[in-house]
Every structure is written in C-alpha cells, then in structure tokens.
Design a binder for these strands. Structure first.
Lengths: 211, 211
DNA sequence: CAATTTTTTGACCGATTGGACAAACGTTAG
DNA sequence: CTAACGTTTGTCCAATCGGTCAAAAAATTG
C-alpha cells in the first residue's frame, strides 16, 4: 500500500531519509548536482543504490528536498532583522549571524552557491518570489533607518548583497581563504578575525580617523 | 609529423583552438567541469567531437589551458596595486577594476568560482604558491599605509577578501542579484549602483555622520 | 597535375550513469 | 506457524560519457 515514495511514515523511513539527506548534502555541496552520482550518495549513506532509490525515487528529488529545507535555514537571519532595537546593532547582529552560518553550515552555503552559479535552474521561481519579497521588505526597514539618520544613506539592496558576499565568502571560498592565509593564520581563528574586520568595515570603513 | 597535440603551428590550428577555448569557457562556466560534456563544447564550437579532440586530446587539457590563461588576467588588478600614489585612491581604483572585471568577464569569474567551490583540485598548488606570494606582498604594502596613518588600521588579508567577495559577487551570483533587484533596478545600471555603494562602504562605512 | 600532409568525420568501444524490477530478506500480527 | 507488509539487494537496461580509429575530405606542397 501507500503511494510511490514512502512518506515519512514509519520511524525507520524518517531516519533513513535523514541519513540520505545528510550524505547527499556532503556529496552535492562538493561536486555540484551533475557532478554527483547516486552511487556516491548511497555509499556515503552506507546503503545500496537501489535501497536509496526506495526512499527517493529520483536523484532530483533528493536535491529538491535538500534545497527546500536549506532555504528556510538560509533566510532565517534576514527574517530576524527587525525594526526594534538600535539599527546599527541590528545590522551588526545580522552580519555576525550570517558569518556564524558560514562557519557552522559551510556545506549548505556551497550547495546554494553551486545552484546559483549554474543559473539557479531549480530555484529561480523562489528567488524572484519569496526571496525578492523578503528583501524588498527589509530594504524598506533599512530605508527607514537611513531616513531617520540612524544609518548612513546608501543603497540598501547593495548593502544586503555586500553582507551576503563578504560572509558567504568564508564558506564558499574556504579553500582559497585557507590557502592564502597559510597554516599559521588560516586556523580556527580566521572567523574571529573576519568578524572583527567586517564589523569595522561596515561600521566605519577604511578612511583614517581625522587625527 | 609533430607531437601528439598539434602545437599552435599553422594559422588554422591557432584559430580553431581559440574557437574551442571560447566555447569551452561558455560551457564550463555554466556547468562546471564534471557537468560539462565534450559534445556540448564541440557543438558550441561548431565542430564534431572527434574534430575537437584533434586539437585537445583530453577534456582536462581544455580546462587546464583555460585556467592557466584565466589566472594571469585574474591577478592583474591586484598586481597593479602599487605603493605609488595616494593609498585611498589606490584602494578605490582596485575595487573599481575588480568590479569592472566582474562586469566584463563574468564567465571567467564563474569558471574560477566553480573551481574553488569544488575544492580547487586543479589549482591548489597555484593558490598556495603564486597567489599567496602575491597577496603576502600586497598585504605588506597595505600595512605600510596603515602604519603611516593613510588607511585605518584593519586586517589587510580580510580587507582583500572583502574586496574579492563584494566585487565577484556581481558575476558569480548575477542571477540572484538580478532576481532580487527586479526588472526595473536590475538593468545595466546595477554595476554603477554597486560601484557607488562599494566606494562608500569601503571608504566611510555605514555609521551615520556625527551631526 | 600528383604526392603528401593536415583536417574532418562516421562508426565504434568500454565505462559510467540514472533508474527499473523482481526476488529475497526481515519484521510483525494474528 | 503463516500471511502480510516493509525493507534490502543483485541483476539488468538504455542512455550517455570520454575517447579511439581508420578512412574520407581539404589543404598544401612540389
């Protein structure tokens, strides 16, 4: 009985689907969608290919499920950007949260980056819909702060892009960051260094203080 | 006669190799290495697969040639960062040049991003060698500016990362940028808006002017 | 022209791919 | 025990992959 793909009915199904998604995240995020094979995912999940296909009937279904889950996590920090509290503190918190996500969920970041890089064929609708709506909303919040003189006037859209770019860089380009920093500076401390730098950059910029 | 791969001897060989590289840049930058097929490249180059393989014997050879060419172009702006001239002007010029590259060579940027995202298996040596050396050198230049009080004190490595991230974002995440900006704001003017914003960000930050 | 070399292609090959399927295995309920 | 259901796997398949090869077609040379 029960339709095609087993819906997370039994306990075992929920568990196995979880194992598969975890394995698929690892594989997809390092090889991209087309560069990953079902066999790779099955092996990483510790099961046979047909067994994996019993839980997800197509390779794309795994990717789609993964992507949908990711998006909620991914947009959460921006959703939290609220009009209550001090504007500059809010912005600083947002930057810190995004940087923590790059540190704690680098695979998710790379999965997302892979998708966007290749033209976002599978999530274009979401970018133009849900994401754009959310950004438009937060742009208005930031604009309010700027009008009130709480934040320097600047393009709010590109401000958001800059925050995304600088924070996600530490997940997506991690290999390059570590290679350039070298063994001594490239250790665990790099995220704290980055946090300090980004805070200064976004708050005060680089122009030397008027002595 | 002549070794395996035809070296750019005849005029026709140089031309065809150029056509292939142009087509491969298009294909590789949108699909990644593993996601691209020789057939795709051959079709984009307007020739048959065996004919393409007559000029480049392996798929990897095309990618390698492309990558080597790219790197020179890619590092050029950083190499130009010189100790002569006003420091803040130099930094502003560097940001502008990098943004222009994102605008004029988005495929090259995405090709590079694809490689890094997947762990840089083919250019790791270059990252740890040539790139690191160049960055270390420029870090010293920037440090000198900071010691001289010409630039606010900050971590020079992360400053460079921030410039890379914010500028390349407009090439690598172009789809997302355009989707979020929408049809009206997402037109050709987005690079000028970005340039204005980035200049303000890196020079003055976002803290409101002390009124 | 004819001889030689370079360029192009159709046909083909073994390996890998995503996926189908039925049979086997395990588990639980009566 | 047995029947029923959920789970797992070995085997197979058609499509696609990177790459080979010999022979045809152009171009070049004398």
């Amino acid at each position: 009985m029960e339709g095609s793909t087993p819906r997370g009915r039994t306990r075992i199904q929920k568990e196995k689907r979880e194992v598969i998604l975890e394995a698929a995240l690892e594989v997809f995020s390092t090889n991209g969608f087309r560069g990953s094979t079902i066999d790779q995912i099955a092996e990483a999940a510790g099961m046979s290919k047909p067994n994996l296909l019993y839980y997800f009937r197509r390779k794309e279904d795994i990717h789609e499920t993964l992507m949908h889950r990711l998006l909620d996590t991914w947009l959460a920090p921006l959703k939290e950007l609220d009009d209550i509290g001090d504007p500059m503190t809010e912005l600083r918190s947002y930057i810190r949260r995004k940087l923590e996500m790059a540190r704690d969920f680098p695979r998710e970041s790379r999965l997302f980056a892979n998708e966007i890089l290749q033209g976002a064929p599978r999530i274009m609708a979401m970018l133009e819909g849900e994401l754009k709506t959310l950004v438009d909303e937060k742009v208005e919040v930031i604009r309010g702060w700027m009008r009130a003189g709480k934040v320097a006037k600047a393009d709010p859209w590109h401000l958001i892009f800059a925050i995304w770019a600088t924070t996600q860089h530490y997940a997506d380009f991690d290999v390059q960051v570590r290679a350039v920093l070298g063994p001594d500076r490239g250790g665990d401390g790099r995220f704290e260094d980055a946090a300090r730098f980004l805070e200064q950059l976004f708050l005060e910029g680089l122009k030397p203080k008027a002595n």
